[in-house]
Nucleic acid binder design. Structure first.
Length: 502
RNA sequence: GGCCCGUUCGUCUAGGGGUUAGGACGUAGCCCUCUCAAGGCUAAAACACGAGUUCAAUUCUCGUACGGGCUACCA
């Protein structure tokens, strides 16, 4: 049977990086196996689900290059009828039962509190109250039918056997067993509107979609037993399960939007200048490792090397600091982004730089073609060597694309103010530069070194002063490349202007 | 509380009965050098603990500790 997997996010917010990784692993597995990658939006919680979240999730997948799902998106809420039908069928077959317990007795108002109470009261076996004591569990079918027909509200619960163990094989975590006594008679359909609950919906949809491998976060591992029970009751073969280790915050807690903010949102990485391929590469290495030491992997290489067996069982810590701005996200992710920026084919980088320059109002029509285009490519290739994110092109790289840029105070202090003679040397250098023939990297260097020698100063003095004069900064590419790219006139102008800063 | 899962440098990880426990990020140093990166070289840095099995355990088994997940008429 050919592989069919799905990514099934619930649209209750932006795409979480953990979810993004789950999507990636599903995608990689599908592509590797020549199977289908499907998308299902689990929007059954109408209160919390929004169309905007759905859009942002799809956008996120698109950004990561995973939006080529093979079939129409399935919206879980639209299948509620099927889910209900399946549960009602189980009632008819005696595998599930109607629970007529009135609302007042349920006490499901504050569940968290209930769990806490349960923790305090030792000795209570299994989850919650043992539903096998539920008086409605063995209600004669006729009576159950009669009460239902009379309009008495009821929930539908799965009848879990009293003795025995549930088991399944997880591709990542191995053989899993759980005592039936640990599993309550889970609710399939809510009382009143008979709306389906998560575990039922997932199973029915996965059956409907012909899912062969359920690849999802480890937080679903324990509940998988419940789902296996539903598959069995429905008389359907269970798919293969592969649970993924979780991504944790530095304090080892589950990474959550509420507690950890924007670092967990995929859109943050897009907005802060990440190259999609770089972030995808980084994500792939969280909870999985290739068989060799190679870490910089293209999508094709990831597909080739990916195996579910290579996924590990221990959770991974996503290392970042909320006090140190330089470590706003994991250092390795940042490093990988820099690596991609400086080594990826220029043709692939260009559109991203363009978008960044356009957003910053630095894009010019002349960059489209011809000499302007050639200049743009040369310049980007030069400055990208030192950049970490796409944002740097409009930030640190600003002086290359426009005449309005800021002078870094410490750079001015260090490279301009330290030597009063620069007041005269800078204009002198400007003159020499204007006379350099032909104008290129060699002649500008000769001009500068000649002036330094005549004036009896170190070439470094003029070089560093020039760097600050031309770019406002103390760091950057080789100075003569900067002269070249900034151009003769602009260079001379900036050198003269900088004399005033000395 | 119960059940389940996990534990190799700060972080991501490789490895697996006998290894100088390997790589990457980060950190430090040196080289290169007009600055800063990049690059090259080097360094510091790990098998949670205790038993057992074994000639030998980081690797297997069992405990303990610690961490995580689940435990809803949420998804």
């Amino acid at each position: 049977m050919s592989v069919r997997v799905r990514f099934a996010p619930s649209p209750t917010g932006y795409l979480h990086i953990g979810a993004a990784r789950t999507a990636l692993f599903n995608w990689l597995f599908a592509r590797k196996e020549g199977g289908k990658f499907l998308l299902r939006v689990e929007d059954t919680d109408l209160q919390r689900s929004t169309d905007e979240s759905t859009r942002s999730i799809i956008e996120g997948l698109k950004w990561l290059g995973l939006a080529d799902y093979d079939e129409e998106i399935v919206f879980q809420s639209r299948n509620a009828g099927k889910h209900r039908e399946a549960a009602l069928r189980l009632v008819r077959e005696g595998k599930a039962y109607r629970d007529f317990t009135p609302k007042a007795e349920r006490g499901d108002a504050n569940v968290k509190q209930e769990i806490a109470e349960r923790a305090r009261s030792k000795g209570a076996a299994g989850e919650g109250q043992d539903q096998r004591d539920n008086p409605f569990r063995d209600l004669p079918p006729e009576e159950s039918d009669a009460r239902a027909e009379a309009g008495e509200p009821f929930a539908v619960r799965l009848k879990v056997e009293r003795e025995g163990r549930s088991q399944f094989e997880d591709v990542v975590y191995g053989a899993q067993e759980r005592d039936y006594a640990e599993i309550e008679d889970l609710v399939l359909l809510r009382s009143g509107d008979l709306s389906p609950l998560y575990n039922l919906s997932v199973v029915v949809d996965d059956i409907e979609m012909g899912i062969t491998h359920v690849i999802r976060g480890q937080d679903h591992l324990t509940n998988t037993h419940k789902q296996v029970l539903i598959y069995r009751a429905l008389g359907v073969e269970v798919p293969k399960f592969a649970h993924l280790p979780l991504i944790l915050a530095p304090n080892k807690a589950k990474l959550s939007k509420r507690k950890h903010g924007e670092v967990v949102s995929l859109t943050t990485y897009r907005d802060r200048g990440f190259v999609p391929a770089a972030f995808r590469n980084y994500l792939a290495l969280l909870g999985w490792a290739p068989p060799d030491d190679k870490e910089l992997l293209s999508l094709a290489e990831l597909v080739e090397k990916f195996t579910l067996e290579g996924v590990h069982r221990s959770n991974a810590v996503f290392n970042f600091s909320d006090t140190d701005a330089r470590q706003w996200t994991d250092q390795k992710a940042l490093w990988m982004n820099a690596e991609y920026i400086r080594t990826m084919p220029l043709a692939e980088l260009l559109p991203m730089v363009r978008a960044e320059l356009e957003a910053a109002g630095l894009w010019r029509a002349e960059y489209e073609e011809g000499a302007g285009r050639a200049w743009l490519e040369k310049t980007i290739d030069l400055i990208r060597q030192r950049f970490y994110t796409l944002k740097d092109f409009s930030g640190q790289g600003r002086a290359y694309f426009g005449d309005e840029f800021e002078f870094d105070e410490s750079a001015v202090a260090k490279n301009l103010k330290k030597e009063p003679r620069l007041r005269e040397l800078l204009p002198a250098l400007a003159e020499r530069i204007e006379r350099a023939e032909p104008w290129d990297v060699e002649t500008s260097e000769q001009a500068l070194r000649a002036l330094a020698e005549e004036a009896g100063v170190k070439a470094g003095l003029l070089i560093n002063a020039s760097r600050t004069a031309l770019t406002g900064q103390s760091v950057g590419p080789s100075m003569f490349d900067v002269f070249d790219v900034v151009g003769r006139e602009r260079s001379a102008k900036r050198l003269r202007a900088a004399a005033a800063l000395v």
